[in-house]
Write a protein that binds this DNA or RNA. Structure first.
Lengths: 199, 199, 199, 199
DNA sequence: GCATAACCGAGACGGTACGTCATGTCTTCTC
DNA sequence: GAGAAGACATGACGTACCGTCTCGGTTATGC
């Protein structure tokens, strides 16, 4: 009884070094400055070892995302039951995170990679937008159960726009004033329509 | 009396050819495939003529944006007075626009360029997000005047998130279901909070 | 009764396959195209099995020579007693052999290998020039005994230049006209000096 | 009035640097150690500048030969009228030259290059064997005119074997004893046939 | 009869060089 | 003096081999 596979086994050490080097270089210098040559040199690895396992620098980035070498500590909303403040607090934390130029730069680098390469974009969604979306939906549904959010609210759409609001600003190199965060939460919870029905 | 400048004057024809070639290539093959060599060849122009007037390919893209060689027909909300349907119609038009893979690809290429280069990002904001933001703010203010939007609504934040909601999806290669558009409009106008005030 | 060595014994099959593959590839594509990777693949053998027994591709070639995997059927002069025609016939046979482009290519490949590597050159001499030299010397000495060759002739030098004449042409990609062969034999036997002594 | 060609003109300095670097590296380390990368680095030149003008390292070597960057001071026979001593002296000078290991190594490197590449072999013949052959033929013909060489001597064949005799030894890493040189001259001039005519 | 040892094929490893392509600069000729 | 052409140094691209090392598996010996 054998495995059928022969030859030297893949070096986990090399794999880790490549992903770490990629994450470091991406955060430090952005997507365009990233090159397979530099990844290999930084990782102390032969260039062929990168190409043996990944088809391009984008593919390495995709695996970095998948394995949490970047964006590892995802910021998700707490679930205290108070949906409005949970969402507000989460939004503020995310804005804080992106206020750090390092994080903003990494984020833009990932956006550039995602723009060029479908796989990165899928992985980015899988690891970032997706979980965030799920967490926000849960948070809002908890709010519905608590009677804090109306039960016919278009929950997925709301989650979508909460994420998009932050991303837009990050990609456009625009610092987000905290007032905006409160405005977003206010608009979403209270609505902007005049209180016509009260009559 | 002269201008004091001697020699051959800058060729407007060359400038136009360069910007047109850039816009064409960017839409056709994305940012990473774009090269100064290719721009010059496509434009029938010497490479030095590009470098004489622009510092990099990003700078050419920035000027393409500024001069409307890309994203020329900006989609802005109509102003019929019915803010809710104006915003809804605009959002639907924008989603339609980005549904065309060509437009989505161009958009992602611009996002990639903006991620790498501050000037492109500024120009992109100036020509796209900015005017859109202004138009949306005006549209919402008209809604306030018409008594359709509550007068303390956080108008700029609302405009922001409307734009961000669309961008997020476009960059993430996610087709936007039309139901989402309606949900976004619903959430923003009616709010998601339970009708606690009625008590 | 044993050797005292333990472990699996060297595979004669692998050795043969390696030498055969080397001879084939060398004749087919020349020295520079030859690679250990290709030898191993062609032989159906692990690369390490080549390196375990030979230090380089040159060493494999050297053993090919030693074991007759290339240049196996050495062309030597017959010894009929008529030294002049024996030498002429041998030279013609050698020229015929090198007229075949396959043989000429193999010969040049060996020369290239010998240029780079002392061991190959030694082996090449041992298996080719050496025996040829010996055979020619014997042939000429027989001619002396038969009174056909003057007894103070510089026999080794003559053997040398007979071999060199052919090699020079082979390495220089020059087809050898048969007239040249006769000229060589004529010059060596009759000399080129004017018959001054006869006066 | 102009040539009609536009664009920067080819840098003669770069060309010279490349050929010099090639000649230096070839003499110092042999053909197999020679690489386009190293040529470019040594010459202080971009790799593309090598590939723009030459198709391979062999082609650079061929041009080195053509332009006299290697084997520049060709050793040719003097023409004092005494053909026998002219040829003897030339042969001794050539043997001296190849006695220097540097020269022998360069020679073998050229032979290796010629083995791999037809163009190099042609150029090598053109610059080395060819002129030598011509000079020897002239030298022998002068001998004929001076009544020192028989007028029906197969002059080209003799020239051929004189060159081949030296080359064979050089390529085979065999030091040439000076006695051999005298033997060669003796054999060629006096012939090896027994003096049957005297009867 | 079971451990030990040296072999086998396979194939991943850190590297060097390949030949191509793009960058941004510089030079030459033309308009 | 601007523009088209195109050579320049630089450096990344992805591929092919280099020579080494590490696997699982296969014979042999010798305890």
């Amino acid at each position: 009884m054998t495995t059928g596979r022969r030859g030297r086994v893949r070096s986990e050490e090399a794999r880790r070094a490549i992903l770490e080097a990629t994450a470091t270089l991406l955060a430090a210098s952005g997507y365009e400055q990233l090159s397979v040559d530099r990844i290999a040199t930084t990782a102390g690895v032969g260039k062929q070892t990168v190409y043996r396992w990944w088809s391009s620098k984008s593919a390495v980035i995709a695996e970095c995302l998948l394995d949490g070498y970047v964006l590892s500590d995802l910021i998700v909303p707490a679930k205290t039951g108070d949906a409005r403040s949970d969402v507000g607090n989460w939004l503020r934390a995310l804005v804080d995170f992106l206020d750090d130029p390092k994080n903003a730069a990494l984020f833009r680098a990932l956006a550039a990679a995602a723009s060029e390469n479908r796989e990165v974009s899928d992985r980015l969604y899988e690891r970032f937008s997706g979980p965030l979306h799920t967490a926000l939906v849960e948070c809002l549904r908890a709010g519905i159960r608590a009677g804090q959010v109306r039960d016919d609210a278009p929950v997925p759409a709301v989650a979508d726009i909460l994420i998009g609001a932050v991303l837009h600003r990050a990609l456009a190199h625009i610092a987000i004033p905290l007032g905006t965060v409160d405005g977003v939460v206010d608009a979403l919870f209270s609505g902007v329509a005049a209180a016509a029905r009260e009559d």
